[in-house]
Computed example of a mutant assay.
Amino acid sequence: MKLLSALGLILTLGTAPAFAAPCSNTSAGFDGWKADFARLAIRNGVGQAGLDALAQARYSTGTISADRNQKSFKYSLEKFMQVRGATTIVSQGRKRLARDRAFYDALERIYGVPGGVLIALHGMETGFGGFMGDTPVVSAIVTLAFDCRRSDFFAPHALAALQLVDRGSISGATKGAKHGELGHTQFLPGNALRYGVDSDRNGRIDFYNLSDAMASTANFLAQKGWQRGAGFQEGQPNFRVIQEWNAAGVYQKAIAIMAAQIQG
């Protein structure tokens, strides 16, 4: 799940205030910034586990490199779908829907979101869980909060990541994508905190558990205004909700097309 506005991430966190320690476009000053951010985290109710994760966070050069080199969203729709393996996603997605029909039908009864949409997102984001990232989530998101390019956007997500550590949903060592997205469908931490669902009712929201991840994804779309039974192609009511998941036009159109093909 990629970037949108500040996601209303003002949720329990409030708008991220200016910090005494300045942002930077290099690693210089990172430790001082973290110390300042820790004070902000304490004021926002982050506990010891979250603070420990912040203290252990390392500046992620891989995250910065990825943030400066996002190219695939500039492709044409046809090229984007080719590069992202749309044909394979649809083929495997149909098999998954047939195999787990009862599971996806149950989610649709609760949230109104068809299984094809959830499966298309799952396939696009992580190849159905085949690769959920190799970068520590807390380090990635804290690095982006420190980086001057989009500090205001990522600072609330960094606070949310620390709260997720406190809740046991992730740890300081949990790995995700380069921009700190986590789990099967790559939630940014603020969205994970706000829309996460304990689908298997084991007392812990785990985005690396398929049941929790799919229910959380369906909940996100429902809370963003998904209209039960309405269309989701471009120009139809629910396409606007797909746009809430990812801001890139080619991504939105690809998801809509693949979801329809998976749904049959």
Rank of each mutant, 00 (worst) to 15 (best):
I89Q: 02
V165C: 03
A106Y: 05
M132I: 06
I10D: 13
L51H: 07
D52T: 14
R43C: 06
S151D: 11
Y208E: 02
L193F: 13
N209Y: 04
P237V: 07
A53P: 04
G116E: 12
D100Y: 15
E244M: 14
L118R: 06
A260G: 01
V142S: 04
E234I: 03
A55P: 06
L210E: 08
A18M: 03
A177T: 05
K175H: 05
A256P: 09
R167L: 14
R201E: 03
A28L: 10
K178Y: 15
L121W: 09
L118I: 13
A20H: 13
L193H: 05
F131W: 12
A230W: 08
E125L: 09
R150E: 09
R167F: 03
R204S: 06
G14V: 12
Q70N: 05
D206V: 07
I42M: 12
D36E: 15
S76H: 02
S171A: 03
E125M: 07
R204N: 09
N44A: 11
M124W: 14
K71R: 14
Q92I: 01
A177L: 13
A28W: 08
Y251H: 09
G123I: 09
I170E: 01
L121E: 00
P189G: 10
F220P: 00
R96F: 02
G130A: 08
I141D: 00
D31T: 15
L107I: 03
G85D: 05
M132L: 09
R204K: 15
N202C: 00
P22W: 10
F220G: 04
R96P: 01
L159I: 15
W226N: 01
V90K: 09
P136R: 08
A120D: 03
S60D: 10
G129E: 02
A57C: 07
P17E: 15
E181Q: 09
R43V: 10
A66R: 13
Q48L: 12
S5N: 14
R240L: 10
F103A: 01
A222I: 04
P136W: 07
T126I: 06
A86M: 13
Q263S: 14
A222R: 15
S24F: 09
K175C: 07
T63R: 08
Q227A: 14
K34S: 09
A140E: 06
G176Q: 07
Q163T: 08
H122M: 12
G29C: 13
L188E: 05
D166Q: 05
F154W: 11
Q233E: 13
E108G: 00
V197H: 02
Y251R: 04
I10E: 13
H157D: 11
Y195H: 11
Q233Y: 06
F239E: 03
L121Q: 07
M124T: 13
L164C: 00
M1I: 12
I10M: 06
A192E: 06
A41F: 12
G203P: 08
G225A: 11
G196F: 12
K2R: 12
A98N: 10
A215C: 05
F131A: 00
R43F: 07
